[in-house]
Design a protein around this nucleic acid. Sequence first.
DNA 1: ACCGTATGCCAACAGGTGTTGACATGCAAT
DNA 2: ATTGCATGTCAACACCTGTTGGCATACGGT
Lengths: 193, 193
Amino acid sequence: MTPSAQPTQPRRSDATRASILRAARERFAADGYERATIRAIAADAQIDPSMVMRYYGSKEGLFAAAAEFDLRLPDLTPVPPAQLGEVLVRHFLARWEGDETLVALLRAASTNPGAAERMRGIFADQLTAAVATFGTDPALTARRAGLVASQILGLAFTRYIVRLPPIVDTPPDELVSWIAPTLQRYLTGTSPG
Amino acid sequence: MTPSAQPTQPRRSDATRASILRAARERFAADGYERATIRAIAADAQIDPSMVMRYYGSKEGLFAAAAEFDLRLPDLTPVPPAQLGEVLVRHFLARWEGDETLVALLRAASTNPGAAERMRGIFADQLTAAVATFGTDPALTARRAGLVASQILGLAFTRYIVRLPPIVDTPPDELVSWIAPTLQRYLTGTSPG
DNA sequence: ACCGTATGCCAACAGGTGTTGACATGCAAT
DNA sequence: ATTGCATGTCAACACCTGTTGGCATACGGT
């Protein structure tokens, strides 16, 4: 029993753990799940490959730790309903440009079932929850969230993975102007059924 | 000189070549580029792995042959301008549901640079050309095509790769109703700039 | 019948993979 | 000072990968 109230005192290996995680995110984002080898990640982190195993158990475990991702969606209740689309695109673009975790997850989701499941969870839970906060037809909430995900992930896929020139070259503000109305309709538009 | 006009007489190995290609498309679509091994493809095609090398040179060569893909975009000039969006979504959905080549290309593009480049080519050339047929501002044509690609590929990504439940469960007709207006605006809408 | 070639299988190579265990070293508490 | 544990290194295992060359067989033209 330690005398103080420190719940878990920081371990000496925390720096190593963090550098492994950082290198893993970079490699997973750049190369995808299978091409990102534990040896390469360990070399980037300047430690031995066996340390990765000790601290994260397996490659799957390392990925699970490296691909922890929170959309950090803001509270949408104070947002004027007519600006929901714009707020969302802008948030997503800003969230991704500075964090390669989403790119890593996106690349890995194409080939790794666990990554795909995590991606499903993120967009099913976090995004659907956000969409549900403003009161639309509950039966349609999941579908609206799915449609938003399809455009948002399509934007990410073409911009960060395929690097489609017209999407890469368009400045963020202009992308927002084009795409915001799409999300707006998916979120608050009347069902076409 | 053969007497008839047959330009290149069919070789006996054409059946083998075709079965290799079919198995390759299945494996690439199901597993992605790196997980789809030549040995597994050869086993599916019930031939020896070395035959794959003889006929396609390398794994890259096999993929290049298996991922040959034509969007088969119809001539858009007779289409009423107000229905362009609907025609396009409907065409894409129909084109994909019966052909796994696009899924193979989509999966591989996440990790294989060659596949990504091919994907860029397909959407830059074929789709941009189709968009250019009806006379919009040429300076905006590429951007409009890119935006269409972002929504179309996002739909494919969420439906066939990530298998996001709300997108998978929504019947095609309803997807068309939701997404057609998006493409319509990307194609013919006024620039928000 | 013969011969050149196409088609196919087998065995192996060289290299890379995730993963494991044994062994050294350092730190911290007794 | 000594014990115990955390941290790190090294070497190796077992397996899988793309790829290659040699050898058998069957076909098609002469």
